[in-house]
Lab assay of single mutants.
Amino acid sequence: MGSVRTNRYSIVSSEEDGMKLATMAVANGFGNGKSKVHTRQQCRSRFVKKDGHCNVQFINVGEKGQRYLADIFTTCVDIRWRWMLVIFCLAFVLSWLFFGCVFWLIALLHGDLDTDYKDDDDKSKVSKACVSEVNSFTAAFLFSIETQTTIGYGFRCVTDECPIAVFMVVFQSIVGCIIDAFIIGAVMAKMAKPKKRNETLVFSHNAVIAMRDGKLCLMWRVGNLRKSHLVEAHVRAQLLKSRITSEGEYIPLDQIDINVGFDSGIDRIFLVSPITIVHEIDEDSPLYDLSKQDIDNADFEIVVILEGMVEATAMTTQCRSSYLANEILWGHRYEPVLFEEKHYYKVDYSRFHKTYEVPNTPLCSARDLAEKKYILSNANSFCYENEVALTSKEEEEDSENGVPESTSTDSPPGIDLHNQASVPLEPRPLRRESEIGSRR
């Protein structure tokens, strides 16, 4: 089982795998120059863009038009607004034209077009017409509009002379109601789609790998820009990579689940303020055997998904993003964004995407760390350097704002901070800030 798991979770494809794949392509008759073999020097295209759209195009789909027309309502909801407006206008105009032609044909076959009612006051002739005051196609078209929109100006009306005319008036009224219901329903469904809710759900630009509770963890940050909550919010993550099976089958995008606390339930989050999602790199993680150097040379993509129900409509929305291997910062942490004021908490989104480097973060893999092949620094050293990194950030910001350097908390000259780390230190809580992250 261990060997199978290692093969499945191998992220960085070796040169031997690339040569094996190329040999397979030639042997199977696919070596026509169009096949692409992804190596370390040639990274694959992003499968999920940063804005959440999937970078996929469908080609050679059989009976595409028929399949889309069979699900016309979903098609109308998914198309762009400009095409929705075109369909909206065409549906009414074509129905008016169709029934206008029908009423014109009825008048033509009944002989109503030969009668001039402007110079004739004989009401008996008017009563013999199928539709009064309809003696041309324009008049028939206007009567069709008046019937379907129930305008009723009063000059044109159907008589009991022709039952077919009466039937067409009733039929057009029913068709008009159906068109109204369909168009209004599609427009309302399109307006109520929770897709735009994703514009106020954000992911951090970069993911980070750092120590948390004595273990290497992959972390990324999510935030909600609205005050309205995302009900039943939960997160998922998958690692996408290519691999070759033991039988020699090439899988271009193998999807591997990344555990973010599904078993323990901590994948469900209360997204009021930005939260750091934590994936513990343990023996079940696809990143277990990867060191910093392996991450730098790897070719994979981590897709992160945030799902929840919109509070206003109770409709489920899904926000997506992805991180390539070069977008994962090893040995970094996110800057705090949640600050405790006197009577409330304040979230500073200008710090949302910012990170700071944490010294002495192990550069080895989580496996080597678990097997004690890498000796961690003293816990006080880690905490102290973590505090120094934050303090230096604040000093830089104070210097930019014009604060005198004498007010900063610099260490005395001639003292090495790293050498001082081995000395037991008193706890130094942050002056006014605390970061709330997901705790395992």
Rank of each mutant, 00 (worst) to 15 (best):
T6L: 12
R8K: 05
Y9A: 15
I11C: 14
I11H: 07
V12N: 15
S13E: 12
S14N: 07
E16Y: 07
E16F: 04
D17E: 10
D17V: 08
G18V: 04
K20N: 13
A22D: 13
A22W: 03
T23G: 08
M24Q: 14
A27V: 10
A27T: 14
N28E: 15
G29H: 09
F30R: 15
N32V: 12
K34E: 15
S35L: 07
V37P: 12
V37N: 09
H38W: 04
Q41C: 06
Q42G: 13
Q42L: 10
C43M: 11
R44F: 10
R44D: 14
S45I: 03
D51N: 09
G52K: 02
H53Y: 06
H53K: 05
N55R: 08
V56M: 09
V56Y: 05
Q57R: 13
F58L: 13
I59K: 15
I59Y: 13
I59G: 11
V61M: 04
G62T: 10
Q66P: 07
Q66S: 12
R67W: 03
R67H: 05
A70W: 05
A70Q: 11
A70F: 05
D71G: 13
I72V: 10
F73S: 15
F73R: 15
F73K: 15
T74D: 09
T74M: 05
T75W: 08
C76N: 12
R80Y: 02
R82E: 10
W83P: 06
L85F: 07
V86L: 15
F88E: 04
C89Y: 02
C89T: 07
L90E: 03
L90R: 01
A91E: 05
A91F: 11
L94T: 05
L94M: 03
S95H: 02
W96P: 02
C101T: 09
C101S: 08
F103A: 02
L105T: 05
I106Y: 00
A107C: 12
A107V: 04
L108V: 13
L109Y: 13
G111Q: 03
G111Y: 02
G111H: 05
D112I: 00
L113N: 00
D114L: 11
D114N: 06
T115C: 04
T115A: 06
T115Q: 09
T115Y: 07
T115D: 03
D116P: 14
Y117K: 01
K118T: 02
K118F: 03
K118W: 02
D120P: 00
D121Q: 15
V126L: 14
S127D: 08
K128T: 15
A129V: 04
C130I: 03
V131I: 11
V131T: 02
S132L: 06
E133G: 10
V134S: 02
N135T: 11
N135A: 12
S136G: 14
F137K: 03
F137P: 14
T138K: 02
T138F: 05
A140W: 00
F141A: 13
F141L: 03
F143E: 00
E146Q: 06
T147N: 01
T147E: 02
Q148L: 01
T150I: 03
T150A: 07
F155L: 05
F155D: 08
F155W: 08
C157D: 03
V158G: 01
T159M: 02
E161M: 03
C162Y: 02
C162G: 00
I164K: 00
I164H: 13
A165E: 02
A165S: 03
V166G: 00
V166C: 03
F167I: 14
F167G: 08
M168V: 04
V169L: 11
V169K: 04
F171N: 02
F171R: 00
Q172W: 00
S173R: 04
S173Y: 12
S173Q: 04
I174L: 14
V175H: 04
G176S: 13
C177M: 10
I179K: 10
I183R: 02
I183M: 10
I183K: 03
I184F: 06
I184R: 01
G185P: 03
G185H: 06
A186W: 11
A186E: 14
V187L: 08
M191N: 06
M191L: 11
K193H: 08
P194L: 10
P194S: 06
K196R: 08
R197I: 11
E199T: 10
T200C: 14
T200W: 08
L201E: 05
L201K: 01
V202G: 06
V202M: 11
A210D: 12
M211Q: 15
M211E: 15
R212S: 03
D213E: 15
K215I: 09
C217W: 04
G223V: 10
G223H: 05
L225R: 10
L225S: 14
R226F: 05
K227R: 06
S228L: 08
S228P: 04
L230R: 06
E232R: 08
A233W: 13
H234C: 10
V235W: 03
V235L: 04
A237H: 00
A237N: 00
A237W: 01
A237T: 00
L239S: 02
L239N: 01
L240R: 03
L240W: 09
L240V: 10
K241C: 08
R243P: 12
R243D: 03
I244T: 09
S246A: 06
S246E: 11
E247K: 06
E249F: 06
E249S: 08
I251H: 12
P252D: 15
D254G: 07
D257V: 07
I258W: 00
I258M: 08
N259D: 09
N259R: 11
D263Q: 10
D267K: 06
D267G: 06
R268E: 13
F270I: 12
L271I: 06
L271M: 12
V272R: 09
V272C: 08
S273K: 14
P274D: 12
P274S: 03
I275E: 12
H279M: 01
H279L: 02
I281P: 00
D282L: 10
D282R: 14
E283G: 12
S285Q: 01
S285F: 00
L287N: 01
D289W: 03
D294P: 00
D294H: 06
I295D: 00
I295L: 14
N297G: 08
A298E: 08
D299S: 06
D299N: 03
F300V: 02
E301P: 01
I302R: 01
V304Q: 00
V304C: 10
E307L: 08
M309T: 09
M309A: 12
V310P: 11
V310D: 14
V310F: 05
V310T: 14
E311V: 08
A312P: 10
A314G: 12
M315I: 07
T317Y: 11
T317F: 15
T317P: 04
Q318P: 07
Q318A: 09
Q318D: 06
C319I: 13
R320F: 13
R320S: 15
S322R: 00
S322I: 01
Y323P: 00
L324Q: 11
L324K: 08
E327H: 00
I328M: 01
L329P: 00
W330P: 01
G331Y: 01
H332S: 04
H332Q: 12
R333M: 15
Y334F: 07
Y334W: 07
Y334V: 03
Y334N: 01
P336F: 01
F339N: 15
F339K: 12
E341D: 04
K342I: 08
H343W: 04
D348T: 02
D348I: 01
R351T: 15
R351F: 12
R351H: 15
R351C: 15
F352R: 00
T355P: 02
Y356Q: 15
Y356E: 15
E357Y: 04
E357H: 03
V358D: 11
V358S: 08
T361E: 05
T361N: 02
P362H: 00
P362R: 01
P362Q: 00
L363K: 04
C364M: 08
S365Y: 00
A366R: 01
D368P: 02
L369P: 01
L369W: 14
L369R: 02
A370K: 14
A370P: 03
E371I: 05
I375H: 13
L376V: 12
N378L: 04
N380W: 03
F382H: 06
C383Y: 08
Y384W: 13
Y384Q: 12
E387N: 02
A389I: 15
L390H: 15
L390R: 15
T391L: 07
T391A: 05
S392I: 05
S392F: 05
S392G: 13
K393V: 08
E395N: 11
S399Q: 09
S399D: 09
E400P: 12
E400C: 10
G402N: 12
G402W: 10
P404T: 07
E405N: 10
S406A: 12
T409D: 14
S411F: 07
P412A: 14
P412F: 10
P412K: 07
G414V: 11
D416P: 07
Q420S: 10
P424Y: 11
P429F: 11
R431Q: 04
R431M: 13
E433C: 09
S434A: 12
E435G: 05
